[in-house]
């Protein structure tokens, strides 16, 4: 979990750790379920150490009673992050080179690799889609799942192109 994400989720108002986790769960839907509770607290502790978060204790000394708030430095960091244009890099080159290497060295039939890969992507697509359909319409989580579905579709289309390219020319087609 990126530190900046946790930081940004606290930008609205100072919150307890459990409030933060609920907010994340709402936004991520079923994806949030896989999130480890400890991970959030580890990240919070790191941010505190870095001086990006300030912690005030309320009531008992249980960690749940801590309220986290952004320091001015933390606020600046969030503003920078929001302005960033970085985008996750799709890792196509690796697969592409895998096909070329397999074909060149006779390690495997590229089409088999494509088919195997497609099977995997289709399973993921099915899962993502199922999850998306289970979400109520227009929820934040549904939007995220829609994004996953669309990316998988794009990947599958690229696999289709790979398949076409690696299919030996058959007579008459």
């Amino acid at each position: 979990m990126q530190q900046e994400v946790v930081l940004a989720m606290l930008a609205k108002e100072p919150s307890h750790g459990y409030q933060l986790r609920a907010r994340l769960r709402d936004a991520l839907g079923p994806l949030g379920d896989a999130m480890n509770a400890g991970q959030v607290y580890v990240t919070l502790a790191r941010l505190e150490r870095a001086g990006l978060l300030a912690v005030s204790e309320e009531g008992a000394d249980r960690s749940d009673r801590k309220v986290y708030a952004l320091t001015p430095k933390g606020q600046q960091r969030v503003a920078e992050w929001i302005a960033e244009v970085a985008w996750p890099r799709p890792d196509l080159a690796e697969f592409h080179l895998k096909l070329i290497a397999a074909a060149a060295a006779g390690l495997a039939d590229p089409l088999t690799i494509v088919d195997t890969q497609r099977r995997e992507l289709l399973r993921r697509l099915r899962d993502a889609q199922r999850a998306a359909m289970a979400e109520p319409d227009r929820s934040d989580a549904a939007l995220l799942l829609e994004g996953i579905v669309l990316r998988l579709q794009a990947d599958l289309r690229w696999l289709e192109a790979c398949e076409k390219n690696w299919t030996p020319r058959r007579s008459g087609s």
Binding site: M35, R123, R126, L144, R151
Partner: peptide, 30 residues
């Protein structure tokens, strides 16, 4: 799911029996 090419079936995938739990990876959470 059956893939068809030039009039013949070339591949068949059973999609049931999922990969749930790994969706997070697809969203960049893991």
């Amino acid at each position: 799911l059956i893939s068809m090419r030039d009039g013949a079936f070339v591949d068949e995938t059973r999609l049931t029996g999922g990969t749930t739990g790994r969706l997070g990876a697809l969203a960049g959470l893991e």
